[in-house]
């Protein structure tokens, strides 16, 4: 047994393992924190832009509660589609000057938030749009018959009625943004993705890479199961 452990191959493996553990010990906590805060903040900002946009995409169309000029709706749809179709890796690089302009820096976790928001808000707008389209037309009609203004219909009817679906959508958005954020190691953004790329990919430390990936998987699992549970619990149609 001791012979097995003292064989040169095994000695080598143990050395690699110890090295990996040392790296993970010093980097993991920071990595998780950076991943969480870039994900959560990006999602938040992306919703600040994407939610109203998604509402407009539903209410502004012909037959919506507050129709907008057709050319404006076409323009909105066009912008959303364009942004949706640019690969995140390209978008991230294209947006670098904008990050520098807004935050004064184009590297680091903070700088990562800008491309994440820009990549995520059109996606979120579409998610919100599809959630709101589920709202029963009859309920909207009922609110109109009571004399509710378009704003009140959105605020008091469409959003609350679509709440479970919006929560499901937010969960998907959050996990997707986390996935995007993991690519940010490329531009010097922080987080678990950076650990995986810097140590695992650039320096061939496969164990570190897989450990970082497994941590990402665990985070996604937690977000998803909490989100699903919240969505189900908030839905009063299920008794």
């Amino acid at each position: 047994m001791s012979e097995f452990f003292s064989s040169p191959a095994m000695q080598n493996f143990i050395a690699i393992l110890q090295d990996a553990i040392a790296i993970l010990k010093s980097e993991t906590a920071m990595g998780i924190w950076e991943t969480l805060y870039s994900t959560v903040l990006s999602t938040l900002f992306a919703y600040i832009i994407g939610l109203p946009l998604g509402v407009l995409l539903v209410t502004g169309e012909k037959g919506g509660v507050r129709p907008l000029p057709k050319c404006l709706m076409s323009a909105l749809n066009f912008v959303v589609n364009i942004l949706r179709s640019v690969p995140f890796l390209i978008l991230m690089i294209v947006v670098l000057p904008l990050s520098r302009f807004i935050l004064g820096t184009s590297i680091g976790t903070k700088a990562l938030i800008i491309p994440l928001v820009i990549a995520a808000f059109p996606f979120i707008a579409r998610m919100v749009e599809s959630s709101l389209r589920e709202t029963d037309k009859g309920v909207i009609e009922a609110a109109q018959s009571m004399g509710a203004s378009p704003f009140l219909i959105v605020w008091k009817v469409m959003l609350p009625e679509a709440k479970p679906s919006l929560i499901s959508g937010a969960t998907i958005a959050l996990t997707t943004i986390m996935g995007y954020g993991a690519m940010a190691g490329i531009i010097g953004g922080g987080g678990l993705g950076k650990i995986a790329i810097n140590y695992g990919y650039y320096r061939f430390k496969a164990i570190v890479m897989w450990a970082a990936v497994i941590l990402l998987v665990i985070l996604v699992q937690i977000f998803q199961s909490v989100g699903t549970r919240l969505a189900v619990k908030s839905d009063k149609r299920i008794t």
């Binding site: 029963d136 009859g138 309920v139 009609e141 009922a142 009817v157 609350p160 009625e161 709440k163 479970p164 908030s234 839905d235 009063k236 149609r237």
Partner: peptide, 9 residues
């Protein structure tokens, strides 16, 4: 209405 159209939530 025929379908009642209550706020389900």
């Amino acid at each position: 209405f025929q379908q009642f159209n209550l706020l389900m939530q």
